[in-house]
Every structure is written in C-alpha cells, then in structure tokens.
Design a protein around this nucleic acid. Sequence first.
DNA 1: GCGACAG
DNA 2: ATCTTGTCGC
Length: 231
Amino acid sequence: MNLAALHAWNLTPPQAIALQRELAQRIDVTPRLPLDAVRYVAGADISYDRFSNWLYAAVIVLRFPELTIVEIAEAQGEVPFPYVPGLLSFREAPPLLQAFARLTTVPDVVMIDGQGIAHPRRFGIACHLGLWLQLPCLGCAKSRLIGTFAEVGETRGSWVPLMHGAAEIGAVVRTKARTRPVYVSPGHRLDLASAVTLTLATHGGYRIPEPTRLAHGRVNQIRRENRKSTT
DNA sequence: GCGACAG
DNA sequence: ATCTTGTCGC
C-alpha cells in the first residue's frame, strides 16, 4: 500500500520531540468508525533480538468480524533509535511502515501495540502511523504511559476513562474477566468510543485483541526462525 | 530534587 | 522488549 513520506527519521531525541509537537496538530480523533464500516482490521507489532540490534516487524490483516487471516506482510532491520519513553514511534514505526508498504490489502483500521493520544504530547505511535498510513489507527497497550483512572469493573467490556488533567485521553478496558485491563486510545481518524468498541469486537478469548495478539505471535515466530544457533 | 516511564 | 518450564489458580 501507499504511504505518505512526511519527514526524515534520522533525528535526535530533541528533534523528535519537536516533530511530535508539530505533527500532533494534524491528528483528528473526532470521526466515528462504525463496526459495519469495517471489513479489514490490521494489527502490527515488533520483536527484538536479545543479542543484537536487529528487529522484526509484521502486519497482519484480518477479515472483520470473522477475524480470519487475510494477509501478512513482514520486514526486518537494525534498531534505528534508542528506547526513550515518549519516543517509541521513532524506534518502531520505520520497520512497521516498511512492512505496511509490502501490504496488498488496504485495511479499514489499524491496531497498534502502544499508545495513541494517551501520550505526553498527544502523539503516541498510533498517531504517528495513522498520519503516515492515512488510515484510522488506534493504540491498544498492555500498560500505561501517562494518565490516571478509577477502578475498572471486573466484567469483560467494562471500562473507565483515562485522564490527563481535564483531558480524556483514552480508556482502561477490561477485555477479559480476572485479567488486567488494556489501555486504549485513538491514534487518528477515529474517536475514543469507536476505539473501545473495536477493541472489544476483535476479542478472540484472550486479554489482547486478535489483531495485535496475532501480530505479536508472528514477529516472535520470525525471530525464532532467524535467530543464530551455535552449531 | 524525587519518581514515572508504551515497547 | 528480552531471559524461560513448569506450575498454581480460575
């Protein structure tokens, strides 16, 4: 699929922060995205090699609401940027975009393992990818980056808003009973309610929704297959 | 100054 | 993120 080359990636942390403040102004989290408007949902993730600076990326497209695999695109390369809380996209977006570029099926919405606007500058990796892909994108993280929230109901489907001061930046969602909640936030071209609805609609029996869960499994599989052996 | 801190 | 099999609990 086609991507929008918005900027260079070889930046220093200070430059990256300045770019986030600039690009954050283009983010739109007001559109509703009805489930009946979704035919294909994509999930993407990254896996790192413990002994080298090599990483693996994968994008997996699922037909919705069946959640059956339609297509998988992959990419791998050197880790381009250090891990700095708040600057994750400069580390993971380049390889992910490479994988997306190899994708034939254009998804209606993309789910990323990380934050959307639930970010100090309202520009998490789901926002960054949303701009480059020019597609609705949401973040579904396993842990919190910023924000405060009340206790979440114990039943599957219950959720509470994730707040940053007076701003509602996301939702803490119980995707499964007796399991820790996930942190959902819109990245671009869809609102919070739609992001939460899609997260619950792509449930496959596990805490992590199928798009992201399957992508995670795929990248780890690729890493194991390419990992050097002492023989 | 002291914590917190997506993956 | 990564290191790692079995095991305790729902």
